[in-house]
Amino acid sequence: MAGMSGQRRMERRWGLLMALPAILGFVIFTAGPMVASLAFSLTDWQVGGTPAFVGLGNYTELAGDELFWTSLGATTYYTLGAVPLVLIVSFAVAMLLNQKVRGLPLWRTIFYLPTLVPAIANVVLWIWIFNPDFGLLNSLLRQAGLPTGQWVYDEAMAVPSLIVMSTWGFGNTMVIFLAGLQGVPRHLYEAVSIDGGGAWRRFWHVTLPMMTPTIFYNLVVGVVGTFQVFNQAYVMTEGGPNNATLFYVYYLFRMAFRESEMGYASALAWVLFMIIVVITFLLFRNARRWVYYEMAGAR
């Protein structure tokens, strides 16, 4: 119909126009530095010196770099633990903070507080929690008659300890879920209730499906962000003990700024980039099966 194609034309025109700031932003601020770093990755370049073209030299060197594999392993381990844990905790808390209770603003602020406490204060706290002698964790375990641990000071326990610590950073993910819950249409809940469905059915048949776009978002952002985990290794463990928490981006950062080996660091970065791109692509492809969008097919 003529009318439809008119609307199509309008959508195309407006679509480009409205996406323009974002596209320009990418072209101006992001693309240049990305291309530059890709070019660096083909050179032997120490900041302050002259780059020498080495082709794929950095990439082949990387394959034989023991620490590259160590850091990739530590990061994958951390991601596999932290992402699902944070997703589950923050979803549960969001459900909890979406109930009708007294003092809701206060409860919500309290649950968001750990996200706001500055990293350095947090680190000092966690150093105490993990302290083998007087630490909170071991004191609790001792009282319960359970064996105690060395936590971040033990090679085997360091990554799991940091995963536990990451759970306290659930605030942002939780807030997104909380916002998402407001979009679940109430009439759907009513429909389930009228059919005699209980809370579990409402959750399973309404909340969960209607929340899939938000869950998907948090999953993707969680994976992209966690693969680039940096801070905990940087401020808390410095990659130790014995490289147990040598996270990929921490290793890369050390190469880039301690050693100023920008060529090698760039190669490291682009390998991680490819890994993240592939995983994200797979997530998006898989999303068609489980993420519910309003009339997604029609669009």
């Binding site: 974002a22 700024f257 760039s266 970065a269």
Partner: peptide, 18 residues
């Protein structure tokens, strides 16, 4: 997708060009 790829490269290597 291209836009989204911008956050997948660790910032440490784009910091200096930026």
């Amino acid at each position: 997708a291209v836009l989204l790829s911008g956050v997948m490269l660790p910032y440490a290597v784009t910091l200096i060009p930026t």
